[in-house]
Design a protein around this nucleic acid. Structure first.
Lengths: 221, 221
DNA sequence: GATAGTTTCATACAATAGTTTGAAATGCAA
DNA sequence: TTGCATTTCAAACTATTGTATGAAACTATC
């Protein structure tokens, strides 16, 4: 046992392929070919294709959350009793954006895979995602503490929108680049993070229109 | 020919199934079973599975864009020479959110399918999506005209973030509901739209911090 | 009502999927 | 070395996939 080279070769190959193509498009034979191992190795080491996917997802999710929490704790420590909301948002957005748009290719695959997993709900992953929202709860709690006077509803919506912008920026950066005619600089990772943090910060702390007045287009004028 | 009941039965059944499950998880046999038609009917009427998917996507995308453009034109007409940016954003966000979170079940499936299609990039759809960003360009142009003094980059990012929030709200409304302990009211469609419009409006028109200097929310004047 | 054209149907086909198998190869302790 | 457990391998297996086929059922025109 020990290093289990085959195991990790399969994991990284699967991650690489899943980062590019859809789950349904990647077969076990594709994975083992990329990993340079035998077909039966997957079932030997992981039991089944679904279990491979589950373990891969769990491993990467843990790594991502670890990094997020580290930044969150650092921000809370730096802020003393009163943590800045934007620092919390930065801990949420920073790691995945850096992983994905940054220079590090290895992590890019990880982030892309994670994003696909969060979107393309396939049974083995769905179970894990649905069950585990504890990491989000932790960020929600931190934001509540940082903004005690704000309505809880705004906190949750702000968090929701922050996740939205992170995800979209990772998955659809190409469309943005194309649409803007290369005007939007997707290499300046820090600027992107700050932009997301800025908008999410507004979502958290601004007064939003109540139910009554806005009205739909059809009833408008 | 005439009504072609079988054809549309297949289309709506496929839409329904694709709205719930991933593309890879839905087989032709699932579709024809749900539609109550023979297996061979798909190939007879559409040629292949991919062509069915492409036609379905094109049809729904056209319907969604038609509705968006109608609202956009109405907003531009109402605004005279100077269209309100928020009205433009409302034309972008209103239709899909109403389709998906509103009472109409039929359209809910359409919107959910569209969202999956925009995320889960499968070859037959990918080709269409990559080729056609003209509808987005139309919204970008409208926003540029409405905000001539603003930096184009902010326009594109604002549009990008608006799409992000729309998508996330459609796909992950359940998680938001759960995370907030039912505090976030996902039945109040108009309030949701206004919230998205509000935040996207900020993204469009606010000054965002450059790379080096992360600014706080309060620096906005 | 016969006929030509369209649509539906049960069924078969070839390809690919994930999984299993049992033998060969390998690593390691005695 | 021998012996035993682990790991790898080529091959086969079963199920499911999208697609193709040809006969049957239907529709409408003459």
């Amino acid at each position: 046992m020990s290093t289990d080279l085959t195991r990790s070769a399969i994991l990284t190959a699967a991650e690489q392929l899943y980062a590019e193509r859809s789950f349904g498009e990647v077969s076990l034979r594709d994975i083992v070919a990329a990993a340079g191992v035998n077909l039966a190795a997957v079932n030997y080491h992981f039991g089944s294709k679904d279990e491979l996917l589950a373990e891969l997802f769990l491993s990467r999710a843990t790594a991502l959350n670890r990094e997020r929490f580290a930044e969150l704790k650092a921000a809370e420590a730096a802020g003393g009793g009163r943590t800045e909301p934007r620092a919390i948002l930065r801990a949420l957005a920073g790691p995945p954006i850096r992983w994905c748009l940054g220079a590090d290719r290895q992590r890019s695959a990880a982030a892309r895979f994670m994003t696909r997993a969060s979107v393309e709900t396939v049974p083995p992953i769905r179970k894990i995602v649905e069950r585990d929202i504890s990491h989000l709860r932790r960020f929600a709690d931190a934001l509540r503490r940082a903004l005690p006077e704000r309505d809880e509803v705004d906190i949750y919506w702000g968090l929701h929108f922050a996740l939205a912008m992170i995800r979209q920026t990772i998955t659809d950066s190409n469309r943005l680049r194309k649409l803007s005619g290369d005007l939007c600089d997707l290499d300046d990772v820090d600027a992107i993070i700050e932009r997301i943090v800025s908008v999410a910060g507004f979502a958290l702390s601004a007064q939003h229109a109540p139910t009554g007045q806005p009205a739909t287009v059809s009833t408008r004028r």
